[in-house]
């Protein structure tokens, strides 16, 4: 039920590696499980582009009608883009969490970091255990 081409964190972020540009770029969002648990998302706080982040560092907040949750960087690198559509349509995270509801792009120096994340099967086990 979770896309096989993504990696996941135990904190319910997903990460998708693309090989462009050199070194690699990782797109980050939150999982369908996370958006479902939060409910209607009404506000997203995003990092500034150019910011260097460590893996596990808080890089923003996702706020729903009823609660707020921190967003953690799944990998270390430099924030090169944030999703401009979320300013006006934060609900895209609910309706399309793996597509139009993406949150930020991080350029990484080493793609090996991705190996430390959960695959879809491991994330699904994590969700069903929690």
């Amino acid at each position: 039920m979770y896309p096989e081409d993504l990696k996941y964190t135990e904190q319910h972020e997903w990460a998708r590696l693309s090989s462009e540009p050199d070194g690699g770029r990782v797109r980050v969002g939150i999982t369908s499980f996370a958006q479902e648990a939060l409910g209607d998302i009404v506000f997203v706080t995003l990092p500034t582009e150019g910011e260097k982040v460590e893996a596990g560092q808080s890089v923003g907040e996702v706020e729903s009608t009823k609660s707020v949750s921190e967003l953690y960087a799944p990998v270390a690198g430099t924030v090169v883009a944030t999703n401009p559509a979320l300013e006006g349509q934060p609900e895209l995270i609910n309706s399309d969490p793996y597509g139009a509801g993406w949150i930020l792009d991080i350029d990484v120096e080493s793609t090996g970091q991705m190996d430390g994340l959960l695959d879809a099967a491991a994330y699904e086990r994590h969700v069903s255990d929690s």
Partner: peptide
Amino acid sequence: MSDALAQDL
């Protein structure tokens, strides 16, 4: 995401 997800309970 932080564990605020569990705060409803």
